[in-house]
Design a protein around this nucleic acid. Structure first.
Length: 257
DNA sequence: ATGGCGCGCGCAGCGCGA
């Protein structure tokens, strides 16, 4: 089973890119972020006619998360405590029992702003949800835009970004706490080499210069991590005209035993 | 040199992202 996460930066503006990439990459589950539309405005027809089951948590203009699945979904949650009503989390169960979540961690604006403690609290709420699912003995995969570059190797210029938002020690600590629970960063586990990015700024020629960050992650619970067979970053969509600034990150999980 | 681009909203230019 192939599961991917992709911050599309507007599902409506990116619909052609999304449909093309779904055909090319052949994922079974796709976790989307920054859909930027209310559920009634989501391009349901185009996706359901292409064979996708949907779980949606949208809002007007900002944020918005979604799950696309080849198999039917049962929604298990659509918010986290303390999310202040922002559409940043949706979670659903697949027929074989695997729980998948699409999450969009607040970027945090700047370390000094009120949004930074909100970001830290959101990361802690993700940890609380993971802990509850582990206690319930569930198998799960939390994919999304974490807005955290976990290590210096995940940043094109770590000296310049030291102590800044996306790289701050406090958010890296919250991210590591997810790993301490027993979750596995699926891409990093198989590709530990530095400078494998998932996001590139639109400005300053960041994309052609390959000056990016790795901030989109797939975190697997222990038994799911045991089934991990491959992972990758598809850079193709980022190179297209009118691209999202993020590109898909994916992993493959062997069938459950 | 601290901006650069692209989105939604809505019809000018602002807020926001990372």
């Amino acid at each position: 089973m192939k599961i991917a996460t992709w911050n599309v930066n507007s599902v409506k503006a990116r619909l052609a890119h999304l449909l093309d990439w779904l055909d090319e990459a052949g994922p079974d589950v796709v976790l989307l972020q920054e859909t930027k539309c209310q559920n009634q405005d989501f391009p349901r027809l185009e996706l359901s006619s292409a064979g996708w089951h949907l779980a949606l948590r949208g809002q007007k203009s900002y944020n918005g998360v979604a799950i696309l699945s080849r198999q039917p979904l049962v929604e298990t949650a659509c918010e986290l405590p303390g999310d202040q009503g922002e559409a940043r989390y949706i979670e659903a169960r697949l027929p074989d029992g695997l729980i998948v979540a699409s999450l969009y961690v607040p970027m945090g604006q700047s370390v000094e702003s009120d949004r930074f403690p909100f970001k830290l609290a959101f990361l802690e709420a993700v940890g609380q949800r993971a802990k509850a699912l582990l206690t319930a003995d569930a198998d799960f995969l939390f994919g999304g835009d974490y807005n955290v570059a976990p290590g210096d190797g995940d940043v094109f210029d770590s000296a310049a970004m030291q102590g800044q938002v996306l790289c701050h020690p406090e958010e890296r600590r919250r991210f590591r706490q997810l790993l301490f629970l027993g979750l596995t960063d699926c891409f990093h586990a198989l590709h530990p080499e530095p400078h494998q990015f998932s996001w590139w700024d639109y400005r300053a020629g960041a994309w052609p210069r390959d000056q990016g960050l790795r901030i989109d992650h797939l975190l697997a619970s222990p038994r799911v991590a045991d089934r991990l067979t491959s992972a990758g970053i598809d850079k193709g969509p980022r190179g297209r005209e009118k691209a999202s600034d993020h590109t898909p990150v994916w992993c493959e999980i062997a069938d459950g035993c």
